[in-house]
Design a protein around this nucleic acid. Structure first.
Lengths: 243, 243, 243, 243
DNA sequence: CATGAATGAGGTTTCATTCAT
DNA sequence: AATGAATGAAACCTCATTCAT
């Protein structure tokens, strides 16, 4: 009893990759597309503007989603804050949910790339963890990326595919990287307790805690994130004092 | 106690006390309330029924909020699942937000009480942490309380007064308790690194991680929570192997 | 990539039958439902009002759909014209489409019942057709039912299940009834051409034409529907003049 | 030419003439249009291309309107299916409504011309009707023109000027033609019942019915349109059997 | 007290129409 | 002339909240 064959419901989304992507699309008929400079210039100008708008939407949406969560965010606010009309959002994203998911995915990408960075040779495991701690605090805890992680934690349970993406792309890789350094540390005799190899999450636990703490309690009691991470490292490496 | 800066939608609200209290409210007409025993019996029966209903609402709401988050939970579903009418919820709670906050507060209480439990005399700090780990896994990680904590983390930023309550009642006390045990461990020579005293959160970090992991990634890769916590304790106490 | 498990999408519609149906619903808990007159009275009053509202919605919707067609009808207008709020419509119908379909179905029912009426004994086939013509003009052409038929013709192609319903319940039965009378007429020697038996639609064709004419051209040139139908009958019965 | 009493949504509109005309429009700047042959050639090439585009739009629109009706047809789909951009439609038609109306008018024209075709001399009225039936089935029932008629019936009530056009150009002429043949048949003694002269619509009724039947019920029960029309003719001419 | 029908503000999504390129 | 990105007015539908019974 559900008739009225609406159109094939498009539901195709537009694109997933960020950046000035949707530039050359559906350009097919004119055989001399490249021979006409004015046309090309016009096209690239437009494409540029489109990419800018898309970026504006992404930025605005990120802020709104972070501030209110998925459900409580109104696309009207996103549009207003991005300086576009409501309908424009739908030129770039299939619907609110697609916007949200593509957003988080895209924002995760820069983080993901760093995870596979090869370790510097000749550096102690301890130094590697120190460096990780500094980078994490500088590039995550103290930036909007912390909010992103929090958003992931917050909305993940309601967006399984997003959680899976995060697990596959971020968690698995991150843990593998941690395990490599741990094994290296054990091998070098820096780390005594080899059960750490079974629970590389332990390395991340304090980092996650700083992220959560910031979102919830910073206003009541600010946390020295770097100090906390360093203290943790000192404990792992069995020192009496953190450096 | 009016958080969640939604747009000024609200229409009104009369605050409501938590607990099974508001059974007898608006009792004004009958001047001889105590003189008629049957009336009294009836009244207490009513009060009982009211308390039961309230409890049912709380239970149902907890499940729904956990499953969908604050914004996506519909009071109609809560009512249906509690076996009451929608309107009945408003006899016990001023509005959706009040229901949510009182809920979380109430659910936190049992947890809070345990935090001030005096330590057993003559037990090592290590044993105390071991006990804590076991209790946490048994009574939090493996119960609905983990969901509660997650909900707190999830919705806290949007309900500052709730976050503050949680900070005051749970976090501060919990950290104080941790600090006591840490100090005790340092004093007894069990713990070498005294920076842990500045960051008692480090003790909790792995516990929080298990809670988050469960909500997000358990389906992709289950986590041995107790093993993880024990490994962490072993590291703190500078052992080569976890027991 | 379509997450966020919205609730089971209800999509249950409410009821299909017209009339004061949804009165006693979900009445289960109180064992003495019938023993408490005040409760009963209240309930029936409510139910009555609900049925009235539903009827008002149906009436208003009918008018609007007839006037503008399915797509161009706004539920807001229906609500306003029915004297209810927009949301109220959704208490009775799952969505716009359900409203439309249930509407047409319900409106067809009275027509359907007449189709199986047994023929009067001892009456000539000609007289039967005459009677049918009169009834059709009086009860269809000159009433809102003509608009209904037109609506069916108009929107049927876009609502296959509705067309099927109409075919099964109205067309098949109607044609069967026609065939019976035709066979009777042939048997009695009133009708010479027995190919009519293969195309009982021919009996209906002029009736349909009057309906369509009314909707389209009546303002330019009114049509004497009964005269037309009678002329047709006279031709079928091979007379020089219509009576 | 502004029908369909939608709410006063419209923003503007500049009427457009039908036919392949508006190729050369707004031609103002070049004062020496005729003096430069290459320019002329270019102009006519353009005009040709424009006419082609217009035709493509008309074709595509016809299909879409037939498939979904006026309201549910999206100009974006029309454009895509015509291989032009959305904006191009507005170079040829003032708005969606103008497109629709001009479309139907244009599509009716070929039909209209045939209506005034002089009867072949020395042919019986019966033969004329037979020929009409054959032509109708071949050129209307079995072609897209049937869909056109249906569209006319369907949307006519919402586009009075369209209905009026159809009445004036198609119905009046068609009925006149019918009447001529009927009178001829009566004169020749082929037709006995002269009331047919008052209701020439009766000739068309079965033809209309086949059109409607096809749109609604063909999938449930296909109809032998030609057989039906022939049976009808046989009845009119008072025969026991159709040829 | 309890109910649940009714309300209506508000949110998402669509699409005719415009206009800079 | 042609394009198609952008607009923003509606339209559908949801759901917190109220209130007569």
């Amino acid at each position: 009893m559900k008739d009225a064959p609406r159109r094939p419901t498009k539901r195709s989304a537009t694109s997933v990759t960020p950046g000035p992507a949707p530039a050359a699309r559906g350009r097919a008929k004119p055989a001399d597309a490249t021979s006409d400079p004015s046309r090309n210039a016009a096209a690239s100008t437009r494409a540029l503007r489109a990419a800018e708008r898309r970026a504006a939407i992404v930025d605005a949406a990120l802020d709104e989603f972070i501030a209110r969560g998925f459900a409580a965010t109104r696309l009207e606010d996103v549009a207003k804050s991005a300086g576009v009309a409501k309908g424009t959002i739908y030129l770039h994203f299939a619907d609110k949910e697609a916007l949200f998911q593509e957003l988080l995915r895209a924002a995760m990408l820069p983080l993901i790339e760093k995870l596979d960075a090869p370790p510097l040779p000749g550096v102690s495991a301890r130094a590697m963890f120190e460096m990780f701690a500094e980078v994490f605090v500088r590039e995550v805890t103290q930036t909007k990326r912390a909010d992103l992680l929090r958003l992931m934690i917050t909305e993940g349970p309601r967006f399984p595919s997003l959680a899976e993406f995060h697990y596959r792309e971020v968690v698995v890789r991150g843990l593998a990287a941690m395990r490599r350094v741990i094994a290296y540390g054990i091998e070098r005799g820096e780390i005594r307790n080899d059960t750490l190899l079974q629970f590389p999450q332990l390395i991340m636990a304090p980092a996650m805690l700083t992220v959560i703490w910031q979102g919830l309690f910073n206003r009541y009691s600010p946390l020295d994130s770097l100090g906390l991470l360093r203290s943790h490292i000192a404990i792992i490496f069995n020192e009496g004092k953190a450096t």
